[in-house]
Computed example of a mutant assay.
Amino acid sequence: MTANPNTQALSDAGVSIWLDDLSRERLNSGSLAKLIETHNVVGVTTNPTIFETALKHGEAYEQQLSELANSGADAEQAVFEITTSDVREACDLFSGVYAATDGVDGRVSIEVDPRLARDTESTIAAARALYKAVDRENVMIKIPATVEGIEAIAAVLSEGISVNVTLIFSLERYRAVINAFMLGLEKAHADGLDISKIHSVASFFVSRVDSEVDKRLELAAEEGKTGTEKLRGKAAIANARLAHQIASESFSSERWLLLAERGGRPQRLLLASTGTKDPSLSDTLYVTELTAAGVVNTMPEKTLMAVADHGEFDGDTMTDTYVESNRVLDGISAAGISYRSVVDHLEADGLSKFEKSWEGLLGTITEGLSRNKA
């Protein structure tokens, strides 16, 4: 099959297109395989909300639910078995991409229980268990970038497990994530591991920043602040572009070059939450304005289809934008909006939403086990 010209153009610009969705129905129907062939999809990300939706709206899990129910599995065990089964199958589907890209792409991410995000040791244990259960080289274990998660990220990477660091909103936290990544590789190398096999992405969230900042800009305007209108829809792109600057600088540092000489692969910036939530903004905004070689953009299917239909790409839209991006964040600060307050709120809110989805997933599984028990 011929690839869509717009997704091909994005791929040619050096962006890895990952799909932010997975379900057994998508696997069984061949939908995911088709997106690999026709829309340049080279990886998948999952999260508790994605799995909750998949379980609520699909019948593809009934057989496994019946088997689990009659084996005496509880809801926690069933969630573990069902999600790792889906991820294992997706890893197998992407095995060709994984081989063709020498392990850079063909990746499938699965997240640790978000309720453990403030518990370093439990996060490490959960990451090990997921990695062992999926039992595929191209799996990535997702760990939230909380303060407690930073230590877990370094520890898990040091054991040779590839990690997708998720829920990053702030530039300061992103620097800590990169440091944890390098610490993990340094320890892995010291322990005699082949660090060329250890990969990582840092998932920097985009659209939620605009949602929160724009809400605060509206309040500032109501309070008489001027110049706020021109800042609407600008914060998320500026924030992500400055993250790109941090990545560019960090992965050209002397510390990194030493790791690269030892076989290290750079942690890639992954742009997450790239579906626009404000209908007044372009539905491809967080793709076309965040294009640069070496980044990953994980998209919900709706955004992917919008890109395929009318996405226009004209080279790098990140590298030469750092000065203007700083001006945007300075303008937001001048409007009385605290950057720290925004990113702290978004992290807490993001964790809360994932915890709620996890609880919903457990509830859905409990109902399914009860329904299928002989």
Score class of each variant (00 low, 15 high):
217 L>I: 11
218 E>I: 11
219 L>N: 08
219 L>I: 11
221 A>Q: 13
222 E>L: 12
222 E>Q: 14
223 E>C: 09
223 E>N: 15
224 G>P: 08
225 K>W: 01
225 K>M: 13
226 T>L: 11
227 G>S: 08
227 G>C: 07
229 E>S: 10
230 K>V: 13
230 K>C: 07
230 K>F: 02
231 L>P: 00
231 L>I: 06
232 R>K: 15
232 R>H: 11
233 G>D: 04
235 A>H: 04
236 A>S: 15
236 A>N: 03
239 N>V: 04
239 N>G: 01
240 A>P: 05
240 A>Y: 10
243 A>L: 07
245 Q>A: 15
247 A>I: 08
248 S>L: 13
249 E>H: 06
249 E>Q: 14
250 S>H: 13
252 S>Q: 14
252 S>W: 00
252 S>D: 14
253 S>K: 08
253 S>A: 08
254 E>F: 11
254 E>K: 13
255 R>G: 10
255 R>S: 05
255 R>T: 10
257 L>S: 13
257 L>M: 13
257 L>W: 02
257 L>D: 06
258 L>Q: 15
264 G>S: 09
264 G>T: 03
265 R>Y: 12
266 P>L: 02
266 P>E: 04
266 P>A: 04
266 P>H: 04
267 Q>V: 07
267 Q>E: 12
268 R>I: 09
269 L>I: 05
271 L>P: 01
272 A>P: 01
275 G>F: 03
275 G>P: 02
277 K>C: 06
277 K>V: 06
277 K>P: 00
278 D>I: 08
278 D>T: 10
279 P>I: 09
279 P>Y: 11
